[in-house]
Amino acid sequence: MTIDSEAAMSNCYDIKSADLSLVALVLKTTDIQAISRALLRQMTESPGFFEQDPVIVDVGFIDIEQHAVLSLGLINLLSVLREHGLMPVAVKGAQGELLSHAKALGLVDASDARIRRSVAVAESIEEAPVHVPSPPAQPLSLGPMVIDKPLRSGQQVYAKGRDLIVLAIVNAGAEVIADGNIHIYAALRGKAIAGARGNTEARIFAQAMEPELISIAGVYRTSENALPQDVLGQAAQVYLHSGPDGDKLRVLPIKP
């Protein structure tokens, strides 16, 4: 082999680290048909919610005794996920036969992957409230979606790849979702999910903060954990704070 050919081969590729945003599908059942129906319902309510997103199949909530059952239906599960726009690339929490079967189907063992779970929400700062400027948001390809009518129970709005602006009340039982920020110039009494695809810089703003659920990049809080009195029913914002104890939502009043 000549020196020139050796040099050409050495320039064929480089090995570099890379970041990839992944979706985690946390399974709570081995019933593949039930999973298929649930995904179909979500796709009907939010068309295009999944667009070839790489996904980790997390089986950590499945009983060990059910692993053998799931392994029998793993091929069907992967087929269902692909049909609904998800691209399974890894499995988390699998053991024994299920893990071997998953690897044989081309899935990577992602046992060390960190999946965001529900965490306690930090209380609002007790010092005199100050306005916290929003950090630069991740670039969004579209302008904001604007909704100018009240949202009733059972209605859902998803602003894919952009911010969402709601000019009317979001009633209990309604749900607003955005890949970017959510601005509600009225009462928020339903669910608000910002940074739906992992944008940790997203925020939620509401003129009257009374939510059933608030979530940013998968970290959420429900109404079972009541908001402090200085933000409940008041103009407030929600943002994600990362610290030594993990990611927490902070809720701050918005003062003139």
Rank of each mutant, 00 (worst) to 15 (best):
E123C: 08
S124D: 12
I125R: 09
E126A: 14
E126F: 08
E127M: 13
E127L: 13
E127Q: 14
H131E: 11
H131F: 12
V132D: 11
P133L: 08
P136E: 09
A137Q: 13
Q138Y: 04
Q138W: 00
P139R: 12
L140M: 15
L140P: 01
L142I: 05
L142E: 14
P144H: 07
M145K: 11
D148A: 10
D148K: 15
P150Q: 03
L151P: 00
S153V: 03
S153P: 01
K160W: 02
D163W: 01
D163H: 10
L164E: 01
L164I: 05
L167V: 05
L167Y: 07
A168K: 12
I169E: 04
G173Y: 05
G173V: 05
E175N: 11
I177K: 01
I177H: 03
G180M: 06
I184H: 03
I184R: 02
Y185W: 07
Y185A: 09
A186M: 09
A186H: 13
R189W: 05
G190P: 06
K191D: 07
A192F: 07
I193Y: 10
A194G: 09
A196R: 15
N199H: 10
N199Y: 10
T200Q: 15
T200A: 14
T200I: 15
I204E: 07
F205W: 15
Q207G: 07
M209L: 15
P211L: 11
L213E: 14
I214E: 05
A217P: 01
A217H: 09
G218A: 13
G218L: 05
V219W: 04
Y220T: 06
R221M: 12
T222K: 05
T222S: 15
S223C: 04
S223N: 10
E224L: 13
A226W: 00
